[in-house]
Structure formats: structure tokens, C-alpha cells
Design a protein around this nucleic acid. Structure first.
Lengths: 144, 144
DNA sequence: AGACTTATCTTGACTCATTCAAAATAAGCA
DNA sequence: TGCTTATTTTGAATGAGTCAAGATAAGTCT
């Protein structure tokens, strides 16, 4: 079974239509991990030149709400997307160039999910973003 | 010594001028924890009607870069500010109404700062955002 | 205190990721 | 095959945040 078949299942289960733009968007996100909207649009249009940016935005939002993809948006950066979902992993972002990498949490399966004092909030997710400098930028900054 | 005196020290140490707009902005942030830019601007203008939004944006960015205040910007929300800095605390955000509350990390002093695999990144900060539903929205959603 | 230098502020235009809205299209059903 | 309406296209609009040029005032030097 291909990932496209998987998408059909998910969409049908939610009574959503399986359309060419949607399939193309999911494929583009899968092929471009951590890609931003612009990247996704370009990738989609390589095979389907007529797809509008709005269709891409709609599809991305839809998939994110269904939990098929995940949106990441570190401070000061535009939205990025990935198909790796459901495993509670986190991200490192380079302060210098914005590069993004996946990080499994150090503290086991579902870490940091318990706040010391939750103020009565019913917490359902802990989002962790590590900020730092990527190897390339470390070298570059050292040379200056 | 007032918090304003503290600001003067910090700014002078960085060879920055102590101006009325800056003092007013810091006071506004202190008086409006988790306030957004619009809130800060309004607060500043109650005492200094002539201060421009640009001056507020500049001051906020300056203070944040000096570590005097901290900028928080959860996905899908505009920037918010707080004067509580240097204690590595985190935040809970309500998915329904956007309310924000402080949370001390459960795992001790500087938690989650070690990623399992940092991909060679030199990590200097771990930002944690808990997502959930605040008490008010829990009650409201139950009633529907 | 008065004059000077230039960091900071005011003003107002501008950016650009994202959203809104209306008419056109095509997915899935009868 | 035709119908219904969810999606898409098209094109304009939004709005937080930024840019730039001239005006102002903080800190300094005399």
C-alpha cells in the first residue's frame, strides 16, 4: 500500500474528497521534510502546474487538522510541514540560518508532558523547540 | 531601587540611551504580563500619547535582544511579552481562547536542555509550550 | 548653561505570509 | 450520464511587522 492509499483512507473516513491537489500536496510534504509553503507549492506545481496557492494552503490546513501532517512554526519563521507525526518528537532550530532538524526527546516516550503546575489547564501536547547553532553556522561564525 | 533604575543600568552598560519611550515600554510590559504589542502600545500611550508604534516595536526588540524581556509567540498567535526572564520557565496556551499562563518546568532547573541527538547543533535554549484547554474553556465547552 | 553629535523617534509607506469571497470546476453519488 | 456540492481558482484584502527619511532629544563636551 502506498502512502497515497493511506491518504484516501484517512480522507474518506472523514468524508473528505480525494482530489488531485490534495494528493499532490501530501506527496510534496512527504518529499520535502520541513519544507515551507513556498517549497510545497513549487513541488506540487512541477507535476500539476495549475494548482493554486490557495488549494495548497487549504490542503495543508486540512491535513494538519486531521493529524496527517504537522505544522512547525518557530518564532520569526514561516510555517513548515512534515509527515512524521504521532511520535512526539521535537525540533532544533538554528538561530543563524533557520535550519531545522528532528530530535527525539531525551526523557523517554512522552516527555515533559506534565507541568509542575498546570493552572487547571487540560494539557494535551508539549511542544519543544531547541534553539542553537547548526554545525555549518558554528564553523562559519568561527571563521569571521 | 525601582525597576526603572534597573533598566537604566542595563541600557547604559550597553551604551544605549535611556529615553522616555523605552522606560514607558518597559513599565508597560511589567504591568501587562503576557501582553501583546497592541496592549503594550495602548498602555504606553496612556501616559505618553505621542509615542509611535515603531518606537514600541524597536524598544521591545531591543529589550528582548538584551535579555531584559522575553518574547513569546505560540503558533497562530501574535507576539507577547513578559519581564520574567532568566528562570527558564515555560508556558501553557489554551487552544480555544489563546490564554497564556506560566509554568515552571517539572524536571528541575534547566530541563529538557539535552536532546537525545543534537545533530551537531550547539543548543543554548529549550523552549517548551504546553497546549491544552484552560479551566474557563473546559467549562464552556462542556456546556455546549 | 549652551552647542553639538548622533542615537532614537515620528511619520507614513510598504512587505508578504496568510486569509477571505465569489464564481468556476470536478469528486462521488443516484 | 447527470446532479449536488465540496473543492478549486482567481484575485482582492488583511494585518502584524518592517523599512526609510527627516525631525527630535539624550548624553557629551566646552
Amino acid at each position: 500500500m502506498t502512502s497515497t492509499d493511506g491518504l484516501e483512507q484517512v480522507l474518506k473516513a472523514a468524508s473528505m474528497r480525494v482530489t488531485q491537489p490534495r494528493v499532490a500536496v501530501l506527496a510534496a510534504v512527504a518529499a520535502n521534510p520541513h519544507g515551507d509553503t513556498e517549497t510545497i507549492i513549487s513541488a506540487v506545481r512541477r507535476d500539476h502546474p495549475a494548482v493554486s496557492h490557495q488549494a495548497v494552503y487549504d490542503s495543508l490546513k486540512l491535513f494538519a487538522s486531521l493529524g496527517v501532517i504537522r505544522q512547525i512554526q518557530p518564532q520569526g519563521h514561516i510555517a513548515r510541514y512534515e509527515t512524521r507525526v504521532g511520535d512526539n518528537h521535537h525540533h532544533v532550530v538554528c538561530r543563524n540560518c533557520g535550519k531545522l532538524a528532528d530530535v527525539d526527546c531525551a526523557v523517554g516516550g512522552a516527555p515533559c508532558l506534565h507541568a509542575s503546575d498546570d493552572h487547571g489547564f487540560k494539557i494535551d501536547e508539549a511542544e519543544v523547540i531547541y534553539w542553537g547553532t547548526c554545525p555549518e553556522c558554528q564553523a562559519e561564525l568561527r571563521d569571521e
